[in-house]
Amino acid sequence: MDGVIGFFEKLGPNLEILVARMPQILDGIQATVLATALGGLLALVIAIVFGIAQVAKYAAVRIAARIFVEFFRGTSLVVQLFWLAFVLPQLPYPFGWRLAPLVVAVLALGLNYGAYGAEVVRGSIGSVPRGQYEAISALSLSPMRGMFRVIIPQAWALMLPSLSNLWIQLLKGSAIVSTVLLYDLYFRVEQVRDQTGTWFAFLFALLAYYLLAWVIVIIMNALEVRAKHKIGRGPALSKSWGMLFRAPGSVVKGGALV
């Protein structure tokens, strides 16, 4: 029995099924969290490396970075997953790697969202005021040192709200990794659906993903408050715990939300 009425009629038994299946569901949550955390970390590294490479002095570096970004941004995440899981093992030696499902998921998520992130990093580097670049030049600091000591710390505060959005998208995008046999949260919910019906199972899935997304929002808000405080825009985190629960990128003036 399905539908709204079925949902309420069978709420009790369904909850019992959910509790009974909780060990597997927790396994799924663990897989989703791992793929999201490691994929996010890889995406961050790729975003920073290729974001900076796109503003490099040498044209060859810029063009190579540009091609990389366009390729992984422009090809579907599903296709990338299938390539890594099913095509890569068939390639001749030395490329015939058979990767574990988690590795496939982390690589594909990291490459795909890292390519988007690289655009965010590039944009935020370009948003640091021109005067900062001029001051670096006027002090004869090398462009490399200026980039890492002056520009990146300021760009970091600018890029965090967008990176936060990307990371949440990565979490939600990770729901397709069961297609390459990583038994994630979505896969486990699918299993429960057989017994409980679509209404109950997918309502649970909505809630579970929503709560996971909130964890990301809180982590990223903490990083953003800290980064903004470091460049003199906003209060310290220890004085503004409430900021952890607001929308990413909110403007803060004098400790109050605006």
Binding site: G131, Q132, A135, A138, Q154, K230, R233
Partner: peptide, 13 residues
């Protein structure tokens, strides 16, 4: 050569 700018351009970080 040292330069002082109209808008100071101190490093805020």
């Amino acid at each position: 050569i040292g330069m002082v700018f109209q808008h100071f351009n101190l490093f805020p970080n």
